[in-house]
Amino acid sequence: MASDGEGLAAGYDVLLFDLDGTVYHGPEPIPGVADAIRALRDRGIAVRFVTNNASRAPEAVAETLRGMAIEADVSEVSTSAQAAAKVLRERLPGGAQVLVVGAPALEAEVEAAGLTPVRQVSEHVAAVVQGHWTETGWKHLAEAALAIRAGALWVACNVDATLPTERGLLPGNGAMVAALRTATDAEPVVAGKPAAPLFHTAAQSAGASRPLAVGDRLDTDIAGAITAGVDSLLVLTGVATPASLLAAVPEERPTYVAQDLGALDEPADDLAPGPQKGWQVEVDGETLVATGKGPGDAYGLLRALCHEAWQSGVTAVRAGDDLAATALGELGLTHAP
């Protein structure tokens, strides 16, 4: 954890940012992100972009970020396509055929790993690699199913069920992986988050020893940070909701919780789930009862609720007064006092 009283970012030497739902929604940057990242760089804190989205090459990701006024170098981008290619390279002989279910960027990573990407099944296919691609259809899944049933190694770049966009949550690679899992009764090797290598590789590239992972998903960003042994900040700008956070299992509980990246300059202690100034939360049977005790924002209440919910296992919430009712309404946890 960062030192007591410091701004959160000051306690770390590199921040590992997820992209979809954390930095942008589709083509739209999340408000305030460019300023927050610029401030980190101005203070000498390294930045890395660690994404489970395998549909674009690191060069394209960096270009997209620069188009949003976010400084980014190709060397600062780590994708799950790169992680999947590394898994394949470690397990297959050079030149082995890999059936690609995914974007041309994934195909390029397979080729860069010294393997032979193909799009149709044959007796020579040694593996299947699957990543997010908006063009994936039945014919691609059919080729993969035949290869997997014939004994090919199956590597999934990630198993994110959804993809946050400016239009809302859309099917992610995990939805397509689920289709193949149903069709083959097989389980893939997962290369991206929540596995640890993406985090370790990104931190090592910055020569950093105190990384902070920042993301919007409990099951990948936060679970991956815990697997990698690094602290994490959950921002509520993407997939996770206050309700899902209260119900999070121990393996998916973040070190810090904030509304957005504007919290990076707030004191670390204020962002950690625990008792909060201005709020009181008590367990009443099977309900958490929240009451206001002075000035306090809704996300402070959420951190107090997390503290009690994670200790007691109780996740139902009720407002004990009007202050709490207003805050719960802001959080989407609306209950009348």
Rank of each mutant, 00 (worst) to 15 (best):
A84W: 11
P267E: 01
L88F: 12
H335D: 15
G95D: 02
L106S: 11
A327F: 01
L333K: 03
V190E: 06
R43Y: 08
G151R: 06
A54I: 11
G21R: 07
P164S: 00
V214I: 13
V283F: 03
G332D: 11
A179I: 02
V159L: 05
T165Y: 08
G95N: 00
G44S: 09
V50W: 05
P273V: 12
E251D: 11
A83F: 13
S312L: 06
L170W: 08
N158G: 06
Q130I: 09
S75N: 09
V155F: 06
A112V: 08
S232H: 04
V110Q: 05
K86G: 11
W138M: 14
A36P: 08
G21E: 04
A142E: 12
V87Q: 09
L234F: 11
D270N: 10
L328K: 05
V14F: 14
L218C: 09
L302I: 07
L333Q: 10
E308H: 04
M68Y: 14
V23S: 03
A186T: 06
R119N: 04
E63G: 15
T220F: 11
Y12Q: 10
A152R: 05
L88P: 03
L153G: 03
G32A: 15
C157W: 02
R91S: 15
G207T: 10
T184P: 05
C157N: 04
V249E: 12
K277Y: 07
V100P: 13
D73P: 11
A195S: 11
H307Y: 10
A247R: 09
G192V: 02
L288N: 09
L88R: 05
G192W: 02
I222G: 12
I226R: 12
L264R: 00
P242H: 03
A186D: 09
G300P: 04
A195Y: 03
E28S: 14
P93C: 00
T287Q: 14
V239P: 15
E71M: 10
A150Y: 02
G102W: 13
A195D: 12
D269V: 06
Q97P: 01
A319K: 01
A72N: 11
E282N: 14
E308D: 13
P164T: 00
A206P: 13
I30F: 04
A206G: 09
G174D: 04
V23K: 01
A105N: 10
V77F: 13
S55H: 14
G114D: 07
L271N: 01
L65Y: 08
L218K: 05
R89V: 02
V61Y: 12
R318V: 12
L218M: 11
R119W: 12
G320I: 03
A161C: 07
E252G: 01
E76R: 06
E135V: 11
D185C: 07
R56G: 04
T134E: 13
